[in-house]
Design a protein around this nucleic acid. Sequence first.
DNA 1: AGATGTCCCTGGAAGC
DNA 2: TGCTTCCAGGGACATC
Length: 271
Amino acid sequence: MPELPEVEVTRLSFALEIAGAQVISVHMGKALRWPLGCAPTLLTGRLVQNVRRRGKYLLIDFDHGVLLVHLGMSGSLSFAPQLRPADIHDHFEMVTTRGTLRLTDPRRFGAVVYADSQDAPQARKLLGKLGVEPLSDDFDVDRFHFELKGRKASIKQVLLAGVVVVGVGNIYASEALFLAGIRPTLSASRLSRPRCARLHAAIQDVLARAVAKGGSTLRNFSSANGDSGHFQLDAMVYARQGQPCRVCSAPIKTMRQGQRSTFYCPHCQKA
DNA sequence: AGATGTCCCTGGAAGC
DNA sequence: TGCTTCCAGGGACATC
């Protein structure tokens, strides 16, 4: 399930290779979350300039226009000069002079959307409400504390919403809250400044480490060059219910928050 | 406005 | 064994 680290690892795995490529053809297969938003032939001849990331979206910049790619929860990209034959879960393919980019997504929660620019309505709709990038200098403790002050929902759900800070999905929200010693059910508004600072550091730490390890491969993630990630080996709480906490040995607990599983240590994480 | 619930989708696991 | 049900999750959207 791709969160920010998996998306960033994917980006790094093909951004340099695809930069400068010219689009030969684009094929959209079975419908993803939304339609492409333009005729595939419109993209023929375009030049790929670079690949950026915003939250969990990849932005493939052309000399004119941009392609927004979201991996959903089961999507992965591959980019290779030669490709295996397409299978039933390959839903998007862009053939270029440098290789073929292909989105494989069994559950089809992913999306590929074209926009004339990052400020075009289609792009604004998807990117406009996203919170701050957690690994950028814009992610500031004072600002973070201020934003959380105004939210009465649980800190876990506020993190997942992506309005305050982007890229923290279900795995890394549980992990970051463990590292910060904060109970996931605690109202965001009740976090003290020092605890916000700890959480801020924990989010940056867990995401940066996950990127460095090549992301998590809990179910089916691999980067565009086919490498698997290794972060799940480091998980402190995620999917470890009933197992001893790696710090205090208390059994890890699980609960539901907003239809999502949360994992936490009842001893290490205080309300 | 923020908070909450619903929905989309399908493979694999669990239950009967 | 074979069927049915449940579950995983990001995020747009509707509703209060």
